[in-house]
């Protein structure tokens, strides 16, 4: 058996197939929704939501909702609450958006740690998913019920985006125009934000709190270099996100075999690095705005004969 066959066999094992599929779906959803968020200058909102979801997960556990869905709902509620707090602070005081974001992120995360540690030390027999898994993500532990949940969410999120495509595009590019043609701007923005929160919370277990940010931002940033049309940007962001999820999970799995002799490597970082790889490639080679492309354009513009009055 040559090395290619060994790799294929390892990647085809059932222990890899489900996590890989789950992270690919997650990358697809997070990438396409994240592209819209990047456009709306809400890149770092995902970061805050990811951190802020932690106390919600712990509270859900404390009140007895210990299924994957229950924990996710708890996280989503906390993430949504954190965004309301950010909005309240920015609208009612002179504090800047990023101050509110950073403060809420740290305080919610701190409260989450307090609750997690409290549960681990004081609640007898509490087999809460190790905190580490929520922080760094471990796709290898995604089970088939997690996969079903992620698949269902992907379907709902993507069909919402497709169904309300024109409205989302209008609201994202020009909220004032969208309002003037009678679109419910606040409600559309609320819907986009809700999708963002949901995507973040879904991704917590697979890629973790810190790295969920990248899965939202990086595919959008990369895709932006490939096209100037929103449809294509969102499409490519989905593709980049999905391939980063797939490639990252595979890489983590293979590396666990080769580098650390079975000790598992967290999937979050490898997925992030795969997504960052897409960003680097796109910034260099992207046909719409990439570095190489704009250099060539500049060169051809310089070689054009100068005319004072273009026709």
């Amino acid at each position: 058996m040559n090395w290619a066959e060994v790799i294929l066999e390892r990647l085809n094992s059932s222990a890899v197939r489900e996590p890989a599929l789950a992270t690919a779906l997650l990358g697809l959803t997070a990438g396409s929704i994240g592209a819209l968020a990047v456009l709306r200058r809400q890149s770092l909102l995902g970061d805050a939501v990811a951190h802020a979801a932690l106390p919600g997960v712990a509270v859900a556990f404390l009140v007895g909702a210990r299924t994957p869905l229950g924990l996710i709902v708890g996280g989503a509620v906390a993430g949504w609450l954190a965004m309301r707090v950010v909005t309240l602070i920015t609208s009612q005081s002179r504090l800047a958006f990023d101050t509110a974001l950073a403060g809420v992120l740290a305080v919610f995360f701190g409260a989450g740690l307090v609750l997690f540690t409290y549960i681990q030390r004081n609640v007898p027999g509490a087999a809460l998913t190790p905190l580490e898994r929520y922080l760094y993500g471990q796709a290898a532990f995604l089970r088939s019920d997690d996969l079903a949940l992620i698949a269902a969410f992907t379907t709902i999120a993507l069909s919402t985006v497709v169904l309300f495509w024109k409205e989302f595009a209008a609201v994202s590019f020009d909220p004032a125009f969208a309002a003037s043609i009678g679109l419910p701007v606040r409600r559309m923005e609320g819907a986009l934000t809700t999708l963002l929160v949901a995507a973040v919370v879904m991704g917590l277990k697979a890629v973790g709190v810190v790295l969920m940010t990248t899965l939202l931002i990086a595919p959008g940033v990369a895709a932006r270099q490939w096209s100037n049309r929103l449809g294509w940007v969102v499409f490519w962001a989905g593709v980049f996100g999905a391939t980063a999820g797939l490639g990252g999970t595979w890489a983590a799995h293979l590396a666990s075999f080769e580098l650390t002799r079975g000790r598992s490597i967290p999937t979050g970082p490898t997925i992030v690095l795969a997504a960052t790889g897409w960003v680097a490639v796109s910034l260099l080679l992207g046909p719409a705005r990439g570095w190489l492309w704009s250099k060539r354009q500049m060169k051809s513009a310089r070689s054009q004969p100068h005319t004072a009055n273009p026709p």
Binding site: D98, L216, I217
Partner: peptide, 26 residues
């Protein structure tokens, strides 16, 4: 000017953090 400052911040810090975590765990 290929990406905005908030997106740049998000991409840079999370990828360097990921590299750090990976190096630690390897």
């Amino acid at each position: 000017r290929r990406l905005r400052s908030d997106a740049a911040l998000g991409v840079v810090f999370s990828s360097l953090f990921a590299a750090g975590v990976l190096l630690v765990s390897v």
